[in-house]
Design a protein around this nucleic acid. Structure first.
Length: 480
RNA sequence: CGGGGUGUGGCGAAGUUUGGUAUCGCGCUUGGUUCGGGUCCAAGAGGCCCCGGGUUCGAAUCCCGGCACUCCGACCA
């Protein structure tokens, strides 16, 4: 068996044996990622980057539809600028990387390589915002940021990672809160409608919220191994940053007032989430809407006359219909190709050989279920479209089941601890709102609060941890 | 950053205990062959044995120091 493996397409570890190793195998063997020479720095290979581009294309369109403009801010932040907001600098200082030399000369002031750009946007706005007519400012930038993480993993934690960071400034708190919630919903829609990942929407507790934020809205997803992944956050800052940076404007009554800020972001980590949500023991399983290749066309008995041409014709038809389609006419055997594209998570495989040509049909095989069907070439565009939709729905339903089956109520800390050890997932409990109980939950049950869901349930009257009157229902879990 | 594991052609490994200058499979190249689930045959190319010191006549192998990957914690998108 071990020897036979070597003859095959690069093998991946069984996910039930070692999920972490399975994950790393998929990232490398499916050619999503390469390791760079500097610890924690990763190369997004073409196939991995293409997934990001598809996510990017969707979000960029949604951002522009909602009135946002893209900008580009500097990569370096002078230390004095970073220092202006106390909570913010405290939150990020431990993971900042600094530039201290320019050429051979030591700099008078060291420069932080941006871990996030709130300070840059605020400083800029302090210059250009003067009147209520200048608001709102609805900015976004696609860039990479740097955080000196101690533990790194492909997609899930890079020292440098790609993301988008939206930053907006509003005349009123109400408007800023609406913006924060609007973007939070867009992230949820990305997850559910595009990535087939069901979400839990809610707010972070004070302990877990972003450094400097008044409120952090979060989207929590459950991975195949039942651990949580935060997938997109949206922050409401109140006027804290604006005050710290001296941003003010003349309102309609000619009063100088302070505006309200938001920021929101999603990163390439999301790709890690996609892998861990849908993947299986054959490798990656990509949701059709972000799959770089949606249909892989594999000619069978391709040396026979007319086979390649017939396959090319189908490929062109599908391509013309707007599908991302590729044909593999290499001299690898069909079986090799089947395994290869399954590992790379291509949603649909189309086989076309001499027998099919006679019958005017082809074979379609779904990556998610392995289901094989013989379909007429006539109307293949519609068949493929329908099947890709079915795959999306199937992936979503499966992930939803995983989320629902592994989310359960607990009445006490002891119960959380016991259930977490035996089954993992999300424990939901009532909570008094005290940070001390969160700390205790972490220490004793090993879980952190994932979020205070919007969809609240009344599970009881008292906090599962301290027994005092409860204020909210909270989801707890082990997070990536 | 604390605790474990690992580092040998592109990939997976053997060799390390008992020092003598590298072996196998896959992949790759070329020519044939085959093609509906990981074809078969033949010939060929490819290695700073993670890096830097040390011991030794001689180091992949022994000693010291780094670095990277990986898992478990703490921190984090």
């Amino acid at each position: 068996m071990a020897q036979d493996k070597n003859k095959q397409v690069s093998q991946i570890t069984d996910m039930d044996v070692d999920f972490a190793q399975w994950y790393t195998d998929v990232c490398t063997k499916a050619e999503l990622i390469g390791y760079a020479k500097t610890k924690g720095m990763f190369i997004l290979r073409p196939y991995g980057y293409a997934i990001w581009e598809n996510i990017q294309a969707y979000l960029d369109r949604r951002f522009k539809e909602t009135g946002h403009q893209n900008v580009s801010m500097p990569m370096l932040i002078p230390e004095s600028l970073l220092q202006k907001e106390k909570d913010h600098v405290e939150g990020f200082a431990p993971e900042c990387a600094w530039v201290t030399y320019g050429g051979s000369e030591k700099l008078d002031e060291r420069l932080c390589i941006r871990p996030t750009s709130e300070t840059l946007f605020c400083d800029h706005w302090a210059d250009i915002v003067h009147s209520w007519r200048d608001l709102p400012m609805l900015y976004n930038q696609w860039c990479s940021v740097l955080r000196w993480e101690k533990t790194t993993r492909p997609f899930l934690r890079h020292r440098e990672f790609l993301w988008q960071e939206g930053h907006t400034l509003h005349a009123t708190a109400q408007e800023a809160i609406e913006e924060t919630e609007r973007m939070h919903r867009i992230y949820a829609e990305l997850c559910e409608d595009v990535l087939a990942m069901p979400v839990v929407m809610g707010m972070k507790t004070d302990k877990e919220k972003f450094a400097g934020a008044e409120r952090t809205y979060t989207i929590e997803c459950m991975m195949h191994d039942k651990k949580a992944l935060q997938n997109g956050t949206s922050h409401y800052f109140g006027d804290g940053f604006a005050r710290a940076f001296g941003i003010s404007f003349a309102d309609k009554n000619n009063q100088q007032v302070t505006p309200f800020e938001t920021s929101w972001g999603i990163t390439t980590r999301t790709i890690g989430g996609v892998i861990m949500t849908h993947g299986d023991n054959r490798g990656l399983v990509l949701p059709p809407k972000v799959a770089p290749v949606q249909v892989i066309v594999i000619p069978v008995a391709q040396h026979k006359e007319g086979v390649i041409e017939a396959n090319e014709a189908v490929m062109e038809r599908l391509s013309k219909a707007g599908f991302r389609v590729k044909m593999d006419a290499s001299d690898n055997s069909p079986g090799w190709k089947f395994a290869e594209y399954e590992m790379k998570g291509v949603p649909l495989r189309l086989e076309l050989g001499p027998k099919d040509m006679e019958k005017g049909q082809c074979v379609l095989v779904r990556r998610d279920s392995g289901e094989k069907s013989f379909v007429p070439l006539e109307g293949i565009e519609d068949t493929v479209a329908r099947m890709l939709d079915d795959i999306h729905a199937g992936l979503y339903a499966k992930a939803k089941k995983n989320l629902e089956d592994n989310t359960y109520p607990c009445a006490t800390l002891a119960e959380v601890k016991e259930k977490m050890e035996t089954r993992g997932g999300f424990a939901k409990t009532m909570w008094c709102g005290d940070v001390a109980c969160e700390v205790k939950m972490k220490e004793e049950a090993g879980v952190s609060s994932r979020c205070i869901p919007f969809q609240q349930e009344h599970l009881g009257d008292v906090c599962a941890c301290c027994g005092k009157p409860a204020k909210k229902m909270v989801y707890w879990g082990v997070a990536y």
